[in-house]
């Protein structure tokens, strides 16, 4: 190889690399251009406010939310020593407990029923998913009427069944349960839809083999359906828990956090502190706790999910 030739090759190599680099750079720019609208909005309306919430939780602010002086962990210390916040935490956790497991079991039962191949099954599937089209506001108004102590159907049913009447939304012992029942109904549509989709994705040959082997229906439910459905169940449990932590609308319409703060779940407490009591610092501290609460739930779910879930 002569010297000029080698020189030429080096030159062309450098040129190629430079071209490659610039092409890579161009494609980076182009990619970011497509992502720009989303990145911009996520920055302005998600990442920035999240940081700002964290920041505000360490400050005393005026009614407009302008930080005045550094508060350190004061807001957090105050929260954990306030009985009102403890009631709110208890209400939130109880609400998750009352709505998530029963809600998923109900939706699963409906999905199993609606997964049978029968004539007219499409009609039932539509009915069971119908609450997905119901807004929280509309559903809450309907349930408020049903819970009306004098004219609602709930107490009329109890009287008809020979039981004593209940002050559903006014009795501190019943209010959270009443809201939970309404919430389970509202969420069933979505949960049902996802679970039915999961059931329909299960390979029907598995059932054929089970049938040939002559196993009982209960056995195939336990040994085929549930394991194969586990990724879907896992998804539904995570989403339902996160949703339960974020409940607001039904509380605002049905109980306004009462009676005696028994239904004052965390998002409602944040709303009240920020927009009614103008205590932005305390509201932000609770928002930070909500964020970490949901983060922990998600992480635990994923850790458990890794081990327990059976992926196809």
């Amino acid at each position: 190889m002569s010297l000029p030739q080698a020189q030429q090759e080096t030159q062309s190599f450098v040129k190629q690399r430079w071209l490659g680099n610039s092409r890579r750079f161009a494609s980076l720019l182009e990619g970011l251009l497509y992502l720009l609208p989303s990145i911009l909005l996520f920055t302005v309306f998600l990442f920035y406010p999240l940081m700002k919430t964290l920041y505000l939780s360490f400050f005393y602010s005026d009614a407009q939310g302008v930080p005045l002086s550094f508060a350190g962990f004061d807001h957090f210390v105050q929260l954990f020593s306030s009985s009102s916040f403890m009631t709110s935490m208890k209400a939130t956790l109880l609400f998750v407990l009352y709505t998530v497991p029963p809600g998923i079991i109900l939706a699963l039962a409906l999905a199993l029923l609606a997964n049978e191949k029968l004539r007219g099954i499409g009609f039932f599937r539509t009915i069971f998913s119908s609450t997905m089209g119901m807004s929280v506001a509309a559903s809450s108004v309907i349930w408020m009427f049903m819970y009306n102590p004098a004219i609602g159907i709930a107490n009329r049913f109890l009287t008809w069944a020979g039981l004593s009447e209940i002050q559903w939304l006014l009795d501190p012992g019943w209010a959270l349960i009443s809201v939970s029942i309404a919430t389970i109904w509202m969420n069933t549509g979505f949960t049902f839809m996802i679970l039915l989709g999961g059931l329909q994705n299960i390979d029907s040959q598995l059932y054929e083999s089970a049938k040939i082997a002559g196993v009982s229906r209960f056995y195939s439910l336990r040994k085929i359906t549930l394991p194969m459905l586990s990724p879907t169940l896992f998804f539904v449990i995570t989403v339902s828990m996160i949703n339960a932590f974020q409940t607001f609308g039904q509380i605002d319409i049905l109980t306004k956090g009462g009676p005696m703060e028994t239904t004052n779940v965390i998002v409602y407490a944040i709303y009240k502190d920020a927009f009614i009591n103008y205590n932005v610092g305390s509201a932000s501290a609770q928002a930070v706790l909500l964020f970490f609460g949901i983060l922990i739930v998600t992480l635990i779910q994923f850790k458990l999910g890794e081990r327990k879930v059976h992926y196809q």
Binding site: L35, S38, F42, V44, F45, L46, Y48, P49, L50, K52, T53, L56, Q64, G65, I242, F245, Q246, F248, V267, I270, Y271, A274, F275, V280, A283, S284, A287, V288, L290, F291, I294, L295, T298
Partner: peptide, 23 residues
């Protein structure tokens, strides 16, 4: 970047509502 996009699903929107209102 895709991972960051997905992780935004874990951020409860309610935790950002006060600054968002201010914005």
């Amino acid at each position: 970047l895709f991972f960051i996009f997905i992780s935004t699903m874990m951020i409860p929107w309610e935790a950002t509502m006060v600054p968002n209102f201010q914005t």
